[in-house]
Design a protein around this nucleic acid. Structure first.
Lengths: 253, 253
DNA sequence: CGAGCAATTGAGTACACTCAACGCGCGTGG
DNA sequence: CCACGCGCGTTGAGTGTACTCAATTGCTCG
């Protein structure tokens, strides 16, 4: 079994179905509780706030900002990171279209991390107070929301496993496998995709240096497991990558 | 600022007040929403299930168990850990009296980690389906529950920061400082306390080996920052420990 | 075309790991 | 009562993986 790094993995639902069901916020996770009837879906639709464009490199929210909205990513990619007292950042996750941002802010009514767009992106604002009110009226939505928060907890536990237990090669393989599975779950190719983040950001996330990431990419290329061209990735040997991720791959050497 | 590792830090409320307000489950976090009126508190009280004793080394729940209850720790300490594909464990947290276990299980209706008592402990079972129903009726409780889940997310992010960014010395200092602050917040001494976990468990949690932990303890002792006797810890230089945790301490060498 | 940034590659180093021996406390059994 | 074994923790010596520092290449964009 592959350690599930995937933030809030998404059930496989055809995109068209989602679009049809949720006009303003199609494709993001809050719209997935399939038990919702049309009326409920409308109510959910109505509280969704304005759409907002976030340009590459721009900050969606930062540490200490008052917590007002959750954000559903409609399009694009984000990174979230914390700042340690020394001023260095630690990336805590990469989020893609369909995922939800800001759940860590509920606890203290302030954001606990920074969220920055890795490319030009679109988000929907979801006013949390409205959402919470709605949750009280719609048990199905409530259940779903709890699932999503719980999945975020689970995802982070997997990252702890990665950072606490794995060697560099294994970490990197796990990272690639995780990205692939998330793209696949979203209807994109799980074999060929673009890295939206820099080598430095990958290294930061995985607790490694940029040089290590570079060497790992070279190695994976040389071994014939990956085709790499700048940020374009093609997985040539998924079985091997999964084996390494699982710690089974003796080829970790 | 000290990286907040504390799982679900607890507001400072005198224990007696809590006991007075919540008969069966006094002292755990679910009983803390101070906005609850007496009637609501009674309702919450009524859904709390049976108490259960978990002996040292015994398992409260394990990976794959169907998710039925959350558990409020009334007394004692637990560890939660994941198992990687190679069969090794990675400890994801240490929990003490007043904290809540099992929130990672909501997402998939199965537990995602194992929970084992570090000493003879008491827990309250909280049937999640009853709780969720109640959440729909009690906005204050709903809010509080979301805060708790969010705090768990925040806590794990801090551990990611620790594992991804910090050196051994800093990790260990952060660990001690975190424990101290949690004990203090609970009304115990934040200066002198007992480690409930073995060196091996600390090392596992911090992504270090047992030997490294042992050496760090010796070093901290030699430097005069800690008094150490087996599992008994006394903090002699809290300022220095906090400085190291913050990365300010040049004495990291 | 050139400036500037991102990524690669190489050489040397250091921090934490591995392996191994030893000490200590404690419970058990002779 | 002491001897012994066992688990847990400490300490030392040597090693290796990933880091640091540095030089070079390649890409992007003005």
């Amino acid at each position: 079994m592959i350690p599930e790094l995937s933030p809030i993995s998404m059930p496989r639902v055809p995109v068209e179905v989602l679009r049809a069901r949720c006009s303003t916020c199609s494709m993001h996770q809050l719209c997935l509780p399939m038990g919702l009837d049309v009326g409920d879906m409308d109510k959910l639709d109505q509280i969704i706030g304005r759409r907002r464009r976030v340009l590459r490199g721009a900050t969606l929210f930062r540490i200490g900002d008052p917590f007002v909205n959750l954000y559903a990513i409609r399009l694009g990619h984000f990174k979230t990171y914390q700042i340690n007292p020394g001023g260095e950042e630690q990336i805590t996750g990469f989020q893609m279209a369909g995922e939800l941002l800001g759940m860590d802010a509920i606890s203290a009514d302030r954001h606990h991390c920074n969220a920055v767009a890795l490319e030009d992106s679109d988000v929907c604002e979801i006013p949390f107070s409205s959402l919470e009110q709605l949750l009280g009226e719609m048990p199905t939505l409530l259940r779903h929301f709890h699932r999503m928060m719980s999945q975020e907890i689970t995802r982070e536990q997997s990252v702890m496993l990665l950072l606490g237990n794995m060697q560099a090669t294994q970490r990197f393989a796990a990272f690639i496998v995780n990205l692939a599975s998330r793209y696949e779950a979203r209807g994109y190719s799980g074999v060929k995709f673009q890295l939206r983040m820099s080598r430095e950001e990958i290294g930061n996330y995985l607790g490694l240096t940029i040089e290590s990431i570079s060497r790992l990419l070279s190695k994976f290329k040389k071994e014939g497991w990956l085709r790499v061209s700048n940020r374009e990735i093609e997985i040539l040997n998924p079985v091997m990558l999964k084996a390494i991720t699982a710690g089974t791959g003796d080829a970790c050497a």
